[in-house]
Simulated scan of single mutants.
Amino acid sequence: MAARKHSAQAASAAALIWAALICLAGSGCQPAAERPPAPREQSASPEQPASDTASVHFTAAGDISMGGGARAVLDVIASLQPDLNIALGDLSYQAGVEQAFCDMVTRKLGKDFPYELITGNHESDGHDGDIGTFAECLPNRLPGLQGAYGIQWYVDVPQEQPLVRFILISPGIKFPGGQPLDYSPGSDRWVWTESAIDGARAADIPWTVVGMHTLCFSMGHYGCQPGEQLTNMLVSRNVDLVLTGHEHVYQRTRQLGLNAGCPVLVPGEARDDCVADADNSLAQGQGTVFVTVGVGGAGHHDVQADDPEAGLFAVWSGKNRDRALGTLDVMVTDSRLDARFVPAAGFTFTDAFAIER
């Protein structure tokens, strides 16, 4: 049934992809909202002062598939009861089963839950599913979204008095026609991304989170697919948190920053001058933390402790070390961002860090 549905939807899905690509240059393409995420009221704790009760709670993971591991991670997300989830690309890993993937998600999380999408390389060009079809059966549920949902978009959460701006982009992966989108300096998508970051600061939104499927720094086997210049632009703008998938590992960098001793981050190098803070208690404005959460259900990749970029990383987990599936669980308030890795049943690896304003 799923294969027949995919075949019937092929034309509309392709049209959706190309319409989305065309509208990236503008500020339109704003999907209708169905359920705004309400700020959660939290009891006072050492991590969250009593006067700081408004919060946004979100989870994020990519590289999902449709097996038991994916369902176990969805169970974790359901148990955490976040306001929204960011799916960091590579969804079903199969063509023609988009509806079945969406059904798996909605059975676990509910049909109105904001399971927000950014494309991975497996569905960006349609060879293992089609991002347009996924976006039809798992549509945007957040009000005020700007851009092309599933490909390049941003949204402020909550819509009124926002605490966080989510900016989702798609550099370094191929789209229909075999070409990647242009995120080179000065391009329309570079300017769009830069403006979305700067706009969050200008609006005094406390936190800025960028998500994309590809990654620049890794202790696995991928290189810097988003590009060195785009990566350095994110750090130069002091994006608080960059979330990625693609590499089937969990890995978190130290807080990386640019300064006189580190005017630019160079892929394949780990310079001490580029590490703004090496512990788990960080201060906002000193740099950017990159977290790869490519453990949403698919298989694992090895991590290499002797990787030339290892000095940039605080923690890592892979096939050959502390293997785990799970999700990043993040709570933001006006004054703090608290993040932790929550493993699925049967795994024990964990991680936690915090950024204070």
Rank of each mutant, 00 (worst) to 15 (best):
D63P: 12
D63W: 00
D63I: 02
I64C: 06
I64A: 12
I64L: 14
S65P: 08
S65N: 14
S65V: 11
M66H: 06
G67A: 10
G67Y: 01
G67L: 02
G68M: 08
G69E: 00
G69N: 06
G69H: 03
A70G: 07
A70Q: 00
R71Q: 15
R71P: 04
A72Y: 07
A72V: 08
A72T: 11
V73Y: 01
V73C: 09
V73A: 09
L74G: 11
L74W: 06
D75G: 13
D75W: 04
D75M: 12
V76D: 02
V76Y: 00
I77P: 02
I77R: 05
I77T: 13
I77E: 15
A78E: 10
S79T: 11
S79K: 15
L80Y: 02
L80E: 13
L80R: 15
L80H: 08
Q81F: 01
Q81H: 13
P82Q: 12
P82R: 04
D83P: 05
D83K: 07
L84C: 07
N85I: 09
N85A: 14
A87Q: 10
A87V: 13
A87Y: 12
L88Y: 00
L88R: 07
G89V: 03
G89D: 02
G89F: 03
G89L: 03
D90R: 08
D90C: 11
D90K: 13
L91C: 00
L91E: 02
L91K: 04
L91R: 01
S92I: 05
S92H: 07
S92V: 11
S92C: 11
Y93T: 03
Y93F: 10
Q94E: 09
Q94S: 08
Q94D: 03
Q94H: 06
A95S: 10
A95W: 11
A95F: 11
G96A: 03
G96W: 01
G96S: 11
V97Y: 15
V97C: 08
E98L: 05
E98P: 10
E98H: 01
